[in-house]
């Protein structure tokens, strides 16, 4: 017997405890994370739009910056968040109304399939059209 290994204090909120989670649990965690991310994006977005009130030059300078690869990487992450949150949201709305409850896992994978196609297409568009 070996005594005395203290249980470490938890460093994350309890809903984010990922041990022993199933697909639907991961879907929930990811949904909450993307949701929080999108709220953060919305705030940043509104803050950036403020530049429009400060003259054309400042706005154009920002657009030039927004076309640089680091920003495109952030946009790619944003696309992922939007697509995931929207499609999973469709599933949750349906299941939450009592529609397709027993098929919720299958629905998840079908929507994620669609999401993957959308993500690939949109990311491809993003990186090619901004060249």
């Amino acid at each position: 017997m070996n005594r005395g290994e203290l249980v470490p204090r938890r460093r994350w909120p309890a809903w984010f405890d990922v041990r022993g989670r199933h697909v639907s649990g991961w879907a929930f965690i990811l949904n909450r994370l993307t949701g929080l991310g999108l709220v953060l994006y919305l705030i940043i977005h509104l803050w950036v739009l403020r530049l429009l009130t400060q003259g054309e030059a400042r706005w154009n300078a920002f657009i030039a910056l927004a076309k640089t690869p680091p920003f495109l990487v952030l946009d790619t992450i944003l696309f992922f968040g939007i697509i995931y949150h929207a499609l999973n949201g469709i599933r949750l709305t349906l299941v939450g109304l009592g529609i397709g409850v027993s098929a919720h896992k299958r629905m998840f994978w079908v929507l994620m399939g669609i999401g993957l196609v959308l993500f690939v297409l949109s990311t491809w568009g993003l990186w090619t059209m901004t060249k």
Binding site: S24, G25, R32, H104
Partner: peptide, 10 residues
């Protein structure tokens, strides 16, 4: 409920 469906899984 946030429909994580973990209850049904376990």
């Amino acid at each position: 409920c946030h429909i994580a469906m973990e209850c049904s899984a376990v």
